[in-house]
Design a protein around this nucleic acid. Structure first.
Length: 448
DNA sequence: TCTGGGGTCCTAGGACCC
DNA sequence: TCTGGGGTCCTAGGACCC
């Protein structure tokens, strides 16, 4: 805990949904749910309008559909658009200080004490946050964020959560415990459902209750590391530094299927495809790893992992795939699998095979698909389109997919800088309709 | 039509080594 | 030769986060 409120936490509000509402004017002010739109999808983000009907992150999309009224937009994610917007925000944070720790695409800590601004008084950081929020909204086309500032990561994060959305809370140094102690323990990072239930059983509901427990009690209850952590957080003791660069510890790829799969050849082909993507990502980041992990989720949702550590690190898709296939053969797949994941951990900087790797196109071969899989059947025309997708029509211009089915696709033709636009239903195989790029939300100043 | 996908960190037991 | 102790690696699972 520092003597000044010099740690800032930013949390963008309902971020995915906010980007969708920016780019799709007809959705502004209306309920929007972003996430998996298939039968086994879950909600990634619900707009505040959708939250009013009870839609929540991590809820199954089926449940959100039950709760939300007709006309609610259920969209798959457009991660390229989110990433671009996030980069604009992170760049603004780096103007405050070089020490910026992104936690996720929509969240970051900033160490203001490492920045050029010297006024770390409560008034000073409040004014800084006010300007930051205005800059973010202006640069992103209206995406808002909640800012918390305090004497530690703990307090900054708690503060940003106190007044969502579009909030600004500074916890003055010295008042940490006044803010912390009345809160439910579940507001502390690291207290999830399991820990909350155990704490409840010993009469702990608030952070003040937690602070009354002895270190020994908490270690017994939650384990050595976690118990010690809880003991300190309850006292606002938090010395965790803001860390700009964190090295990746693992790279993985997983997929839940629309229906449970039982066919070994099909499962092996999926392993190959996932291994190919993992290998590609490893090589993109110049990493290789020694431990290959296969994750399986069975028909009954029980989850297991099987791993094997190789003698040498690898970034080779074939080696990852071969290892994962063997792990699957040993683990079995009786009853059917709903999910498979392939991952590599134990990472190091340099790929062992790099010096000798040919740069011929091994990837298709490595995936196994070109070698032994029958050619994937061309998906039906309407399967090319998914809700929320950016498209462009040769005559009608840019727009986005509202829905699809029965050989048709419904598109709304509008963009971030247009008024709400018209809806047209087209043949799914309309040759004039193409996948599009995320639209630019910034008004063009030069002729583009 | 229950329950995504990408991660991190911790624990615990057994193997193995000194 | 009847019983040690510590350290590291590997594997599996669980809790948690966004």
């Amino acid at each position: 805990m520092r003597r000044e409120a010099s740690v800032l936490h930013l949390d963008l509000d309902a971020f995915f949904a906010a980007v969708e509402q920016r780019d799709k004017p007809s959705l502004r002010g209306r309920p929007v749910v972003v996430g998996g739109t298939g039968g086994r999808g879950v909600v990634a983000t619900a707009s505040y309008e959708a939250r009013a009907y009870g839609a929540r992150s991590a809820m199954s999309t089926a449940e959100a559909r039950r709760r939300c009224p007709a006309g609610t937009a259920f969209l798959g994610g457009r991660f390229g658009a989110y990433r671009r917007t996030s980069e604009v925000v992170m760049a603004l944070l780096r103007e405050l200080s070089p020490l910026v720790e992104p936690v996720s695409i929509d969240e970051a800590y900033v160490d203001l004490a490492a920045g050029p601004g010297s006024d770390l008084s409560v008034d000073g950081v409040t004014e800084l946050a006010r300007r930051l929020k205005a800059d973010i909204a202006a640069a992103t086309g209206g995406v808002t964020g909640s800012v918390g500032i305090g004497s530690s990561k703990l307090m900054a994060k708690i503060a940003s959560d106190l007044d969502k959305p579009d909030g600004l809370v500074v916890v003055p140094p010295g008042s940490e415990l006044d803010v912390l102690h009345p809160l439910p323990v579940t507001r502390l990072g690291g207290v999830g459902p399991a820990t909350a239930e155990r704490l409840r059983q010993v009469g702990v509901r608030t952070v003040a209750d937690l602070a009354a427990k002895s270190l020994t009690d908490l270690v017994t209850l939650a384990g050595r590391a976690h118990g010690t952590g809880l003991y300190q957080l309850a006292r606002a003791e938090d010395e965790r530094p803001v860390v700009a660069e964190r090295e990746a510890k693992s790279v993985s790829q997983e997929s839940t299927f629309e229906r449970d799969l039982t066919d070994l050849a099909e499962l092996n082909r999926l392993i190959d495809a996932m291994a190919a993507r993992v290998g590609e990502r490893l090589r993109d980041s110049a990493l290789s790893g020694r431990t290959v992990t296969l994750k399986l989720r069975r028909y009954d949702f029980t989850t297991m992992t099987r791993s094997q550590t190789l003698p040498q690190p690898t970034d080779d898709a074939r080696q990852v795939a071969t290892t994962a296939r063997r792990l699957l053969a040993e683990a079995g797949h009786g009853g059917g699998l709903r999910l498979i994941g392939v991952g590599v951990s134990g990472l190091s900087q340099y790929a062992q095979g790099d010096l000798f790797a040919d740069d011929s196109p091994v990837e298709e071969e490595a995936s196994g698909i070109a070698v032994e899989a029958p050619a994937a059947p061309e998906p039906p025309a309407d399967r090319r389109w998914w809700p929320g997708q950016d498209v462009v029509h040769d005559e009608l211009g840019p727009g986005w997919v509202w829905g699809r089915g029965l050989g048709r696709v419904t598109v709304r033709f509008e963009g971030p800088l247009t008024p709400p636009g018209p809806v047209r239903t087209l043949a799914a195989d309309d040759p004039a309709l193409h996948p599009g790029d995320p639209p630019d939300w910034r008004p063009t100043t030069m002729g583009a």
